[in-house]
Design a protein around this nucleic acid. Structure first.
Lengths: 259, 259
DNA sequence: ATCAGTAACCTACTCATGGTAGCCAACGCA
DNA sequence: TGCGTTGGCTACCATGAGTAGGTTACTGAT
């Protein structure tokens, strides 16, 4: 499933061939569009969003800018479309893997494998796009992230039917945390190519599963007390130091010697 | 309450006053620089990186562009400097809070409180910068993130001295995961202003602590086998059904801060 | 054949914005 | 009163997104 993707470059080559088949340089709209998308993907991966100029894209495709704009709307829309595809694929992969696993206790693991498998198949692209680069990338990345979070929330609910004790209200929060943790691990893995897929996926599972388990046994209202054991009814935490808010770092704003 | 930070706007006002004190428009370099930084911070928070133009910055400060460029180098350097400051402050806050906590079992919680406290104090800024927007933001955000990860790794090591069984090699991975999880939670919290600090911090702790605990009881080489029980040699640390899921904190990891 | 009408493309712009070259003026000091 | 240093300015360049308006080749109906 992962190597269904002939790697960006190969896809470009394929569509380019198809285009070359057309004699007069006049290429049907849909094909041209596919070509533009393919070349754009390669370009973005290669240069990053900002360094990739629409002029260069047009040049590589072998048409003039207005053609590109007519086909894809704008640079941002173009990028968005590409991310959309990636998100679709990732989402489908993970969802399928998780739902295919019958044992609820192993679903997390299945999801982890699928996720990191996907990332592995696109190490370059993932690294180039998710971290490091610039531009409305962040917007698009935000969207891909949002969708992952939604998916995780959905799968959480599907897997662990919210009992009266389960903090259903916080599924979203948990989904955000999981998504973040996985993304973080992916970023780490990106720089540790020698670590095998099984290990990352295993690490992720080991790290996350117990927390989920523990969470299931808690009542919603426990969180506050977990941290401030003395303040169940009244919102009167303030155990000793009470870091966070004001305590530890007196932060002297205006005197800040910004250098 | 949490506004130990006079909020970006106030800081601008302060430095602006200071500038106004100087009669003939001619303002000493360092002061002007501080003004530019303050105004820039406000601008970035308000507009996001890309929408904030250097022309507008110069206009707001009341000088011409070359002056701005002379003072801060470039737009990216400017942004970088601002993020640097934020990272410094966040890092110092969290580190102090964690190290101030003597009980190793509560350090995570202390860190969580500090972290979310910081975020709360800058809800707007954090939201505007960490997610959503564009530009070399990502680069800078990447840096702030990197430093948080380093810090977490450092604190992990400091708190839970790596025994022979502790997967010291993976501290970095764990740090990445934690950073991601916290960031994810922060993003979620950003849209749930009614949730009190204690609850987010508690949630984070509950979610993360058991995993760390479980991890401490595993051997490095187990990860692979955890996921694929038949894969590696033969080490079988009670694979059972699911890794840490089986029982919350099955083994009692070391708690020997003094090594 | 021919003559719309349309689909694919192009040249040549505008406009916004990051960044710079080179000039000028006020202040402090001998 | 000259004179260097420092703070500042006007006017410009380069790049890159996006567009206006025209042109050529292909189609299908007369």
């Amino acid at each position: 499933m992962v190597d269904t993707d002939p790697s960006v470059a190969a896809r470009v080559a394929a569509v380019t061939d198809e285009v070359a088949a057309h004699p007069h340089g006049r290429v049907p709209r849909e094909l041209r569009r596919r070509q533009v998308l393919a070349v754009a993907e390669a370009l973005f991966v290669e240069r990053g969003y900002h360094q990739a100029s629409m002029d260069e894209l047009a040049r590589r495709v072998g048409v003039s800018k207005p053609v590109v704009y007519d086909l894809v709307g704008s640079k941002e829309q173009l990028f968005h479309a590409l991310m959309q595809d990636a998100a679709d694929e990732l989402g489908a992969t993970v969802r399928a893997a998780v739902l295919a696993e019958q044992d609820p206790d192993r679903r997390l693991e299945a999801g982890a494998r699928a996720f990191f498998g996907f990332v592995a198949g696109r190490r370059r692209a993932w690294g180039a796009l998710m971290s490091g680069d610039e531009g409305p990338v962040t917007t698009a990345v935000g969207e891909i992230r949002r969708r992952q979070i939604e998916l995780i929330a959905e799968l959480l609910v599907a897997t662990e039917p919210a009992g009266p004790h389960a903090p259903a209200r916080f599924v979203d929060a948990v989904a955000h945390a999981l998504s973040g943790a996985f993304e973080g691990l992916a970023a780490w893995w990106h720089h540790q190519p020698d670590v095998p897929l099984e290990v990352v996926a295993g690490l992720a599972t080991v790290l996350v599963a117990p927390g989920l388990e523990a969470l299931g046994g808690l009542d919603v209202d426990d969180f506050g007390t977990v941290v401030a054991p003395a303040a169940t009814g009244a919102p009167a935490p303030a155990p000793g130091p009470t870091p966070g808010a004001g305590g530890p770092s007196p932060s002297h704003p205006q005197e800040d010697p910004t250098r």
